[in-house]
Amino acid sequence: MPQVEITLRRSNTDDKLGQSYIPQVLKTPSGLILVEIQGVLHIPDIDHDDSGIPNVLVGSFDVKEDGKALLMVHGHQRLEGTVKKLQTPLGILKMESEENESNRHNPDIGGFDSQGRNYSTQRIQHGKAEIVEIIRHKVSFILRPEPVV
């Protein structure tokens, strides 16, 4: 029986990024932002870089203190959006990947030890997951993109 324990990542607020370029309500301790777009964000299919270095330029993003937002994609599509408060806050849940599950128990059936205790407790598989951020606002671009002329 797998069981996953979830903890909240407690970011040190001293590390909070300035992010003066986004409105106060969008700011999160980790600097993560949730954006909703209609359809799919098409990105040219190239090798992904594990080092985390951004390798595909998508365009530009702007959001003002009044909540108006603008997304320019590849320089030829323009999306207008707004900052919206989420009815229910969302947790960004990071699941532990299989190979990192160092504490995953062998699902073999256990047995009694000399005191007759701990019978088969080994069968409980513990996984771990972390909520890396709690998001209360999103930037919503739900209108069709307009071509840039």
Partner: peptide, 29 residues
Amino acid sequence: MVKLSANIPPLTPYKLIELPPDLLSALEA
């Protein structure tokens, strides 16, 4: 304007989970 780029792996370890008040308060305690 803020420069925006993408580095999206095909499989994401992230999921979004709704946090109703009881879950949120338990988590933030």
